[in-house]
Write a protein that binds this DNA or RNA. Structure first.
Lengths: 138, 138
DNA sequence: CACTTGCACTTGCAAATTGCAAGCGCGAGG
DNA sequence: CCTCGCGCTTGCAATTTGCAAGTGCAAGTG
């Protein structure tokens, strides 16, 4: 986003910050990982992103290797998907969800989801991640 | 950071995005959680934050309840610490570290740390978190 | 085939945020 | 007192953001 973010390698948190340290990116990843969003118009709908920002974030995520943009042969329109690198963020996203569940007094995380998350986070993560691999959608 | 971030409650990822969805905040939290940074001048040193940005991020983290600013009676200068809410982010930070370890080709995460992280992440998280509770520093 | 529609962006511009450099206040040390 | 270091604050230029409107294109309609 600013000059030489390329240099933000090395330190793991700095690397993660460069890759996903932006509220729109987190929201887009959420939509891809947990809401089955695949099309441009599906992202950050509730939050109301400006379309130019959305476009630039998608580009950054793509060039960071977190998402993959392909064209749907059925209608010529783009389809966005998480790459393996992007899918690997699921455990981190779940950790954030667990945190928000605990600390956001207005949280909307369903109790059942929170329970699964607490009892067997790895299992839940694997289930979500495998559900995201090619062709297992919808 | 922009208008009505107060409304970013409810959805857990959106909440987390509002709280820590910013590269400087992640870096500051890293310094507090993993590098024993406590003073204004200790934060994001390698990354070179502008001091005005640092000041505003510290304020935001404080008003979000993630950190706590107190005055050191010894010398009248501020000391920053993670609150319980802030400490609870450690597992999420570790998940990000694990991810960066895997995907950053230039990662500087020590192998031994990565091994602990893989073998017993919860244990590592607990160790770090308990090391951060009042008075256990230095 | 011309015409409209829906989707995926792109563009222009004003407003907000960022980064940089310099300045300020204060407690400790000399 | 005077100076120094630390923890910010301020001013200002450069970017980035958000909003609104526009463009290109494929598919549907008559």
């Amino acid at each position: 986003m600013t000059r030489k973010l390329d240099d933000w390698h090395g330190c793991p948190i700095r690397y993660a910050a460069a890759m996903i340290g932006d509220r729109w990116k987190l929201v887009i990843l959420r939509d891809l990982a947990l809401k089955e969003a695949r099309r441009y118009g599906d992202f950050a709908v509730e939050e109301g992103v400006a379309t130019n920002i959305l476009a630039s974030r998608l580009l950054e995520l793509e060039s960071g290797g977190l998402i993959d943009r392909t064209i749907d042969p059925e209608n010529g329109r783009p389809i966005y998907r998480l790459t393996e690198k992007g899918r690997d963020l699921v455990p981190a996203l779940l950790a954030l969800i667990a945190w928000s569940y605990k600390w956001d007094p207005k949280t909307e995380v369903p109790k059942s989801f929170a329970r699964d998350l607490r009892r067997a986070p790895d299992k839940l993560a694997r289930r979500i991640m495998s559900g995201l691999v090619e062709g297992t959608s919808a």
